Simulated scan of single mutants.
Amino acid sequence: MDLDTVRTFVAVADAGQFQEAAAELAVTQQAVSKRIATLERGLGARLFTRTARGAELTIDGQAFLPHARELLRVAERAFASVRGGSRPLRVDVINSRGAASGLMRDFHRAHPGIELDVLMLFDIEAAVAAVRSGAIDASFRAVAVPGRPLPEDIESVRVVDEPLHLLTGPAHALAGARSVPLARLAGHRIWMPGIVPGTEWAAYYDDLVAEFGLTIEATGPNFGSDALLDTIADTPALATFMGGQTRLVWPAGHGLRRIPVTDPTPVYPHSLIWSRDNPHPALATLRDHLGAMRPERPEGETWTPAWTRR
């Protein structure tokens, strides 16, 4: 359906006269008449009755009017979604409680006038495809996985290294430790349901296991963080890893312990990735904001997989 004819129909309906609608649209009265005639032929219905006072809507015209207004509103939203600087900045984060989400909350507080759409894609393949297509403007990721470098048109910058903590229940053998050396975790069962082979976080933990002889179990369905916390609290033999900047709340009766891992501290490398051809003006503001940050760095030696970029 031609939007000019719909816009003309709404203008005539509001003005009540073809001549006034023509003046509002800056076209001739003849052009208005032709557009209305074209619309009526397309709909197979008479929309106006000409009277001495001007043009009155028929019953069919009255029925069509609210839909015509909605068509114009939808069209305006569609144009706004791609109009430079007018649509929200769309940013992908790994999860809603991790370090990347915290960075975006800080950005929103610093720049409340920038409208944001924050979403969560599954893995780096989906994120890179969405960045390249323009479906999203940026993504926080671990940058790559072994053997799959980023495409040439994708840029990245490392923004924060998030230290891993060990999370245990109150009866776990390490529950009383103020910190735990990474090598001491060998032989302990670390349960992390939801690790999916082929993702960047799976590659991260595969390298961690291989280098330090850890046992990470990804068995069982992933029922979410609440079920994970319940199980860790009730099972002395199990622990799990979580990001040091991950925000979780659990019942006081769980007695869970967050224990920093040291010597070396494994850190998860969060990088911002974007397409160098992306024109959204707020993207530069986000990069400048992240570049001006001075995130706290873990003390002592740290570890990341060899394939992560600095």
Results as ranks from 00 to 15, higher is better:
Ala218Asn: 06
Ala202Cys: 14
Tyr204Gln: 06
Asp206Pro: 01
Ile232Ser: 02
Ala203Arg: 00
Leu208Pro: 00
Phe223Val: 10
Glu200Asn: 12
Tyr204Val: 03
Leu214Pro: 01
Ala218Arg: 11
Phe212Gly: 00
Glu217Pro: 00
Ile216Tyr: 07
Asp234Ile: 07
Ile232Leu: 11
Ala202Trp: 05
Pro236Gly: 04
Glu217Thr: 10
Asp234Gly: 12
Phe212Tyr: 13
Ser225Trp: 08
Thr231Gln: 13
Thr215Val: 12
Leu208Asp: 00
Glu200His: 13
Ile232Asn: 02
Tyr204Gly: 00
Ile216Ala: 00
Leu238Thr: 06
Asp234Val: 08
Thr219His: 14
Thr231Arg: 13
Ala227Met: 12
Ser225Thr: 14
Glu217Ser: 13
Val209Met: 11
Tyr205Asn: 08
Asp226Asn: 14
Asp230His: 12
Gly220Met: 05
Ile216Pro: 03
Thr235Asn: 09
Phe212Met: 07
Thr219Gln: 14
Glu211Thr: 14
Gly213Cys: 07
Val209Lys: 08
Thr215Glu: 10
Ala233Gln: 03
Ala210Val: 09
Asp206Met: 11
Ser225Phe: 11
Pro236Ser: 03
Tyr204His: 10
Gly213Gln: 04
Val209Phe: 05
Phe212Lys: 01
Pro236Met: 06
Thr215Leu: 10
Asp226Trp: 04
Pro221Val: 08
Ile216Val: 14
Ser225Tyr: 12
Ser225Gly: 10
Leu214Lys: 04
Glu200Asp: 15
Ala203Met: 07
Pro236Tyr: 07
Pro236Val: 02
Val209Pro: 01
Gly220Val: 03
Thr219Met: 13
Ala210Phe: 09
Asp207Ser: 12
Phe223Asn: 13
Phe212Glu: 04
Ala237Gln: 13
Thr235Ile: 07
Leu214Val: 06
Leu228Phe: 04
Ile232Tyr: 03
Trp201Tyr: 15
Ala210Asp: 14
Thr215Pro: 06
Ile232Arg: 01
Leu208Lys: 00
Glu217Asn: 09
Ala237Trp: 03
Ala218Phe: 04
Val209Cys: 10
Thr235Cys: 12
Thr235Arg: 09
Asp230Arg: 10
Gly213Leu: 05
Asn222Phe: 14
Thr231Ile: 10
Ala210Pro: 00
Ala202Leu: 06
Gly224Phe: 08
Ile216Trp: 00
